[in-house]
């Protein structure tokens, strides 16, 4: 029985990572209508930056390093928007072209990682070592930390979107970009903020997951793809739906990996994706047109 509880907790950990990834994607898609294929590269970037900081920063306290990395990631998200998205937006059918541009950007960035850091795997420390022992049950402290961080980050994001001025601006642009322009919102600023937040979310996911997977140039791709499936299952643009979907798919992945092996996780995901698209194309929440 204990094994199932442990699997359940491992599933929650994965769900947390996927929800961070998918919420970043959903936020970008909801606000700017860009399907960002480079979200996985931002994930990898976060992990590499943290790795560099841990090895070169004179005062390598975990939390200071993480906060500095996240500030850097916000800048990276902003810069990503300015370099790759902003120049494309003047084109007439940019909604179509931008997807291919982000795909090209992802491959460009990943190959830059390969050039700079080499193909060798790098390790990142965990937030806490050791584990809690509850009778027959063992939970590592890092796993618990992952779940707590993910939940608090998503609650914070929810508060940001519903309470702050910029959050409201972002929701307004998500509903109608033309309407937002008419009432005088600064669309460019909203775009920059969305990408900065998505960069932070990807960075958090990268720092939390890569202590387990190690860092290599393509580490972001599997996580990004699972994030995509989560995003579609949750209903594009709905954060609540994304959370449900992340929990479901995290559990599915853990149990599939436990019974059949980890390499079947992605095929099962694709199967679920196609079944969902056939029978419930609006996803679980279904708020999106």
């Amino acid at each position: 029985m204990a094994i199932y509880v442990e699997l359940f907790i491992a599933g929650l950990v994965l769900s947390s990572i996927y929800s961070l990834m998918a919420v970043g994607l959903t936020l970008i898609y909801g606000v700017t209508k860009v399907l960002n294929y480079a979200q996985g590269s931002l994930f990898t970037l976060g992990a590499y930056i943290a790795f560099l900081m841990f090895n070169n920063f004179p005062y390598p306290n975990y939390f200071i390093v993480v906060i500095l990395t996240l500030i850097f990631m916000a800048g990276a998200g902003l810069l990503f928007e300015k370099i790759f998205i902003y120049p494309v937006r003047r084109l007439p059918d940019w909604n179509f072209i931008v997807i291919i541009v982000t795909l090209g950007a992802a491959l460009l960035i990943d190959n830059l990682f390969l050039v700079i850091f080499g193909p060798l795997q790098k390790t990142l420390p965990r937030a806490f070592s050791g584990s809690f022992n509850l009778g027959i049950l063992r939970i590592t402290k890092h796993n618990l930390f992952v779940i707590v961080v993910a939940i608090s980050v998503l609650l914070l994001l929810d508060q940001f979107l519903s309470k702050t001025r910029m959050g409201m601006n972002m929701r307004a642009v998500a509903q109608s970009e033309i309407g937002a322009k008419i009432v005088g919102l600064n669309i460019n600023k909203v775009y920059s903020y969305s990408f900065a937040i998505a960069g932070i979310l990807a960075g958090i996911a990268g720092i939390l997951l890569t202590p387990r997977t190690l860092i290599y140039p393509l580490v972001g791709w599997p996580v990004f793809l699972k994030g995509l499936v989560v995003m579609v299952l949750g209903g594009l643009g709905s954060i609540k739906g994304t959370l449900y979907a992340a929990v479901i798919l995290g559990m599915v992945e853990i149990f599939v990996s436990f019974f059949w092996g980890a390499r079947w996780a992605m095929p099962i995901f694709v199967l679920i994706l196609i079944v969902v698209l056939v029978f419930k194309p609006k996803g679980l929440a279904g708020t999106w047109e």
């Binding site: 494309v88 084109l91 072209i97 090209g104 960035i109 830059l112 390969l114």
Partner: peptide, 19 residues
């Protein structure tokens, strides 16, 4: 190793400035 970096750059630049 820079080959794919250059190819990625070609994609981005062509689409942005010469669609």
């Amino acid at each position: 190793q820079y080959r794919y970096v250059i190819l990625g750059l070609i994609v981005v630049i062509t689409l942005t400035y010469l669609p």
